[in-house]
Design a protein around this nucleic acid. Sequence first.
DNA 1: GGTTAGCAATCAACAGACACGAGTGCTAAC
DNA 2: GTTAGCACTCGTGTCTGTTGATTGCTAACC
Lengths: 346, 346
Amino acid sequence: MELDNRKIQILKAIIETYLETGEPVGSRTISKINGLNVSSATIRNEMVDLEEMGLIVQPHTSAGRVPTDKGYRLYVDRLMEERTRDISKLTRFFSRRMDRVENVLKSMANMLSADTNYTAMVTGPRYMRNELKLIQLAYLDASHLIAVIVVEGNVARNKIIPVKERLTNEDLLKLNILLNSALQGKSLDDLTLKHIARLKEEAGPYRDVVGEVLNAISEVVYKEQNEPPEVYTSGKMNIFRYPELAEGTMAERILTVLEDKGRITDLFERDSGSGGIRVYIGGETPMPAMQNCAVVTTEYDFGKGLRGRIGIIGPKRMDYEHVVSTLKTLMEEMDRIYHADNREEM
Amino acid sequence: MELDNRKIQILKAIIETYLETGEPVGSRTISKINGLNVSSATIRNEMVDLEEMGLIVQPHTSAGRVPTDKGYRLYVDRLMEERTRDISKLTRFFSRRMDRVENVLKSMANMLSADTNYTAMVTGPRYMRNELKLIQLAYLDASHLIAVIVVEGNVARNKIIPVKERLTNEDLLKLNILLNSALQGKSLDDLTLKHIARLKEEAGPYRDVVGEVLNAISEVVYKEQNEPPEVYTSGKMNIFRYPELAEGTMAERILTVLEDKGRITDLFERDSGSGGIRVYIGGETPMPAMQNCAVVTTEYDFGKGLRGRIGIIGPKRMDYEHVVSTLKTLMEEMDRIYHADNREEM
DNA sequence: GGTTAGCAATCAACAGACACGAGTGCTAAC
DNA sequence: GTTAGCACTCGTGTCTGTTGATTGCTAACC
């Protein structure tokens, strides 16, 4: 069947009305929209066609029509008009003196949920190639050293190492030089047993300390690489604004998924091959709990391998235009700020 | 009216039955409990008295009785029997190689919520007297230094400082010695303008770097001291197990409070003067959203000023015996481990 | 005087009956 | 191809009657 111009107009009107109200849309409501001067009976005839095409359904006889996932998909792909966004709010947190990555991500999530009234989630960056940038040992007290480990992207972690024998300051200095010259620029994959054996040998009496430092490195870096990244969330309770997500045990099931960092990461990183904004509608998400949800995600990039994903989660009748344009504008701003010139610090 | 022995027995039976079922308890149910060989009619007479005393109420005529806040309070204060707890589960995470505080607190929260089926929340430690223990500067790359700041309790934070001129390694070493000899053992309150001026003077050409380091210290330490502490939560979704907390908009309202670190801190730290375990029942909490909840909190202490609070949040018909004895045993174990001998590392 | 059996009264919960309104599908006329 | 009109469907809200649990009261009992 032909999806002619009038059918498209009617479908768009149905979807946009449903986005606002959340109630099934009847033929009479559509016929009253100006620009489309036909009677409700005509609309009804067209609706039957749209229903045959699988774009809308009736929840029950004698109810209005509701868009199907396929209908939303058509809308998102072809009908939606791009809105330009006011970027003053979006960039406020970039313009402040640059903070650590976590804080930027947190405030991004806060802004997004406040701006959209949906739930915003931002996954912490995954470090793809964790080159060691600096290792620094220092005495903390008589029996403990602190090892500070900095990897590419200026992410610093520390680990406290108990020591038995007392090292002199000079020895500590030598140890620092030894560790840095051996390990700087290396990633976990580069560190073979051979390297480690040689390093330990060179450390002589302090081989145990070197061993502990290497343990600390692998623990810190490995964990960062393999565990699901941190997830910053904001506006989880917004799901209660939408009755179709709050009724029955829906809210519980959705919130349970949102609590699970691993599942959020899976959700956001599905076929995330190419860049750009992805929209998953209802059954397109892998989670049964999220059949009534839509998820919009995109990748962010702070440069230097600091990449993660941003996601907006809301009802299927989400204001796609708003969400997509907000994310798009945010990404453009971010690109402008972090990729034009070098950032000062992070 | 006299609260004689039989009345107490009946009240206890009502409360304990209600804790299990969550349904109003009728006179017949109580009369069937062995040990109390009286008819339902007698129980009814006693119930009228208990109701007059404000310990139980009927949700409506011809329904069974439900404990009031006052009834729970009497139960918690006087009727509850202490159970001894199997501590094998409780101490598992203490016996593992000592991790950073955050991880211990996280796993404590996880264990508590899994063990009780309620929500567990642990506030991060507040550092009462943040003495500086170590300041360590190192070159990260040509134009950035990293300053590692360690305070009492071995909590390390880092801050990246951009520098214009290139310092030699020797200068850096001198700067480290200068900073540490001037600042070690000092807290924020000790640092007067006079100190700072002298320190800057001594730093000579590197006064700007010293200034930046001091900024970093005040930023890191001040923030830690004045913002609400981190809150680690586990089992938030457990509230959906209890219909009286899940129905209507209750769940939303409770979860909204639980999302708010500031309000959680307020909730836990109410008149937390003396130690021990505190129980807040229904209206005794300051939050209107938590009228149907009970909150059990206690203070933990890792030593060296690392103190915060643990809280269990559940329905008013919470298994108080279980929760209180779990927390008590946990605190005793913690005391044994952290206060008997010195801990190895944190 | 305390205890108990018996009984009427109360009320939530549930199910069936009914009217109402929104919305559709179909048909005949334009 | 479009429209008006009408019968039909079905969710929603209201009312009514029934059932079952539980109470309070009273009179009899120990």
